[in-house]
Design a protein around this nucleic acid. Structure first.
Length: 494
RNA sequence: GUCUCCUUCGUCUAGUGGUUAGGACAUAGGGUUUUCAUCCCUACAACGCGGGUUCGAUCCCCGCAGGAGAUGCCA
């Protein structure tokens, strides 16, 4: 039997880490088993739906390189794959259930339901949920409600006796007494749209879904779904409930923990490889020691059995580590093009970069590569090139173990060695050795010579390596800034 | 309140009826280095608690505690 899985998000917000991981697991499971990965849009909540969310869904999957075999845009044999376009279908099935006596019309107002709920809470009633007020209306009562123009909902008749069990690949058998299953949940809302439970079961069945991998928060409604499959006389699929992704405090990951939308991470300069690799590892592992996985590898080695039961806490620092790793592994050309938008945003280079600017960005890649956690770090690393704010504070030029006098000499003589050396076409290593010799002569540490030069050139004690900085600045600018730095130290010395 | 699920270093995890309980991130220290970073080395650090079963339990069983989720005309 062919494996068919689906990712079925609701476009009511930006795609977040938890959702994307569900998508990834489904996608990898399909690939590893030569199956099909289906994308289905569950847009039955008309209140919260937004076009932006739908677009974000497509953009995010696109960016991650997750292609769906069937779904919106690409189509497929069981379409449409957007639930709002399947509107009529759900009503038909719901009404069939009513005809079969497995569901019924309910005319209760939201206000009444709320009142019932409040009373149950207030009385600490053991029984919580709908009181089945409309479960056995007579034809006359129904007709009266209809006359009043009340739009009914359709509720499932949940048995009050017995229990329902379903099997979960990870959890084993999960059993719930029927009296503990949500009493008579709504299947079709008064606006004619189905609820999640109805639409989900119908579509999974009609689309031939064989395995359902979804978040653990759905476990409690598992029995309800089984009841629905039974009511329709359908065979339920294999279930596998995924551990949730939590924040530092052990609560469901949310915005107060930091970024949660993939768009946020993308904007900050995270690479899709890093997101895929790390997110997959929260709740899944191959062998406990392999950490680096490419998407292609995961498409081969992903096993459902290796998914964990325990919810995982999302560790931003470990993500950073992965991202740094992937930045270092990134091709120069690609990294340059990833860096470009940040440099443009900062106003460092133009929207239509000239050939010179492009060449400069390429030169920036090497020195920045080892130093970025996220691509946006390039802005701070390269700021000295585009914004020249000389350091006026003499103390900054003085390295640890040196003093103002030695620093001045080191800068003055070091600059000469540097410039004449470069102009004579000497090897950098040779120049470096001469600078080291100078430090010895002055009786200061090596950095006592390099620091004032670096501060003079990059306006900061923390900078890219000296010779890289010079290459980026160019000879003329190097001379200018060195001359100016000498001036600053000289002036203060009188 | 009721129901369901979960429990190995701070975090992600490996693992076994007898192991020095392994790896990675983080943290701390050190080395390489012109700063930063990279890279390398070292250290720190865990089987939730209580009962069983057993010659022996982190591992098997039962309680407990703690955590999470669900309990919507949201998914």
């Amino acid at each position: 039997m062919e494996v068919r899985v689906r990712y079925a998000p609701s476009p009511t917000g930006l795609q977040h880490i938890g959702g994307v991981r569900t998508a990834l697991y489904n996608y990898f499971f399909a690939k590893a088993n030569g199956g099909k990965f289906i994308l289905r849009v569950e847009d039955t909540d008309r209140e919260r739906y937004s076009d932006e969310s739908l677009q974000d869904l497509y953009d995010t999957l696109d960016w991650l390189g997750i292609e769906w075999d069937e779904g919106p845009v690409v189509g497929g044999p069981f379409g449409p794959y957007i639930q709002s376009e399947r509107f009529e279908l759900y009503r038909k099935y719901a009404e069939q259930l009513v005809k079969d006596g497995k569901a019924y019309y309910c005319y209760c107002s939201p206000e009444r339901l709320e009142k019932v709920r409040q009373e149950q809470i207030a009385s600490k009633s053991e029984y919580q949920g709908y009181d089945r007020h409309c479960a056995n209306l007579t034809d006359e009562e129904r007709a009266e409600y209809e006359r009043q123009g009340i739009k009914p909902v359709i509720r499932l008749r949940v048995p009050t006796e017995g229990s329902t069990t379903f099997h979960d690949v990870l959890m084993g058998d999960i059993t719930r007494r029927n009296r503990d299953v949500s009493p008579d949940p709504i299947l079709l809302k008064s606006d004619g749209f189905p609820t999640y439970h109805l639409a989900n079961v119908i579509d999974d069945h009609l689309m031939g879904v064989t395995h359902i991998m979804r978040a653990q928060e759905w476990i409690p409604s598992g029995p309800l779904h089984i009841l629905l499959y039974k009511a329709f006389g359908w065979e339920p699929p294999v279930y596998c409930h995924l551990p949730m992704v939590m924040g530092k405090d052990g609560q469901k990951l949310s915005k107060r923990h930091g970024s949660t939308s993939v768009r946020d991470f993308r904007t900050k300069g995270y690479l899709p490889e890093a997101i895929i690799n790390y997110v997959t590892l929260v709740g899944w592992s191959l062998d406990g020691s392999t950490e680096i996985f490419s998407k292609q590898e995961l498409e081969k080695c992903f096993r459902m059995e290796n998914i964990h039961k325990k919810p995982g806490i999302f560790d931003y620092k470990k993500l950073d580590w992965f991202n740094g790793y992937y930045i270092r592994a990134c091709e120069d050309e690609r990294l340059a093009s990833l860096m470009t938008p940040y440099l443009q945003e900062a106003g460092f280079i133009s929207k239509e970069p000239s050939e010179d600017e492009k060449a400069l960005v390429m030169k920036l890649v090497g020195p920045c590569k080892e130093r970025m956690k996220v691509v946006s770090d390039v802005v701070e690393l390269s700021r000295f090139l585009f914004e020249d704010k000389p350091v006026e504070d003499v103390g900054v030029y003085v390295a640890k173990g040196s003093d103002e006098e030695s620093t001045f000499k080191a800068l003055e003589r070091g600059s000469k060695i540097l410039i004449s050396g470069l102009e004579a076409g000497k090897e950098e290593q040779e120049i470096e050795e001469e600078l080291v010799a100078l430090s010895k002569e002055l009786g200061i540490k090596v950095n006592g010579v390099f620091q004032p030069i670096r501060v003079g050139l990059t306006n900061s004690t923390v900078s890219l390596p000296l010779f890289d900085s010079i290459r980026l600045l160019g000879m003329d600018e190097t001379k200018r800034r060195l001359g100016r730095a000498i001036g600053i130290l000289e002036a203060i010395h009188g």
